[in-house]
């Protein structure tokens, strides 16, 4: 019986080791998802920080476009009041669409195109939109690898025991996946 016992103990030890590894893997991946979402939110914040500058720069020139500025202010307030991740994502999409409209309307003001400070702001905004797109995509990739870990054996056992759930992907509201085009074509 002795070899059997030794074998059993060693086997249990190995299983335990593997389960610990699997559990730690889940924790790590879950942390990485959170970290990547924080990365997305950092970029959202960056976008909001730019909006007052943008508004201040263009408002004087765009006197008759009150509606757009009001929408933008509303959307910003919604984001500030959002508590859950879903609310935040929805509010961010709202900001995105009103910002997109403002940028399209700006194209009609040639005096803005000639202004270097307006151009710089557009660059910053375009860069931010692009960053958001990149970080969102990486967030979804991170969620994919985490979800795979949760659903696949042996992670699925540990995930069930310790309550690791599948994470939802980031999904923009229909039509807002495409970042507003903020390229000024200067010919």
């Amino acid at each position: 019986m002795k070899p059997f016992l030794i074998g059993l103990v060693a086997f249990v030890f190995l299983i335990g080791f593997s389960l610990v590894g699997s559990y730690n893997g889940l924790v790590t991946q879950s942390q990485k998802v959170d970290q990547q979402w924080a990365q997305v939110e950092t970029q959202y914040q960056r976008r909001f920080d730019l909006i007052p500058n943008l508004v201040a720069t263009v408002e004087g020139v765009m006197q008759q476009e009150r509606q757009v500025f009001a929408d933008l202010a509303n959307a910003r307030a919604n984001y500030a009041g959002a508590k859950t991740v879903d609310d935040k994502a929805a509010a961010a999409n709202q900001v995105e669409s009103s910002l997109g409209r403002l940028l399209v309307i700006m194209e009609n003001y040639p005096q803005l195109k000639a202004s270097e400070s307006a151009n710089r702001l557009i660059d910053e905004l375009a860069g931010t939109e692009n960053r958001i797109a990149v970080e969102r995509q990486r967030f979804n990739e991170q969620v994919t690898s985490y979800n795979l870990l949760v659903k696949r054996f042996p992670g699925s056992i540990m995930a069930g025991m310790f309550g690791f759930r599948e994470r939802p992907f980031f999904q923009g509201t229909p039509g807002s996946e495409v970042a507003p085009t903020v390229k000024f074509n200067i010919n």
């Binding site: 990365q39 660059d123 375009a126 860069g127 692009n130 960053r131 958001i132 797109a133 990149v134 970080e135 990486r138 390229k183 000024f184 074509n185 200067i186």
Partner: peptide, 9 residues
């Protein structure tokens, strides 16, 4: 990198 920078046509 994380999408920072600028582009133009």
């Amino acid at each position: 990198s994380g999408g920072g920078g600028a582009s133009g046509k």
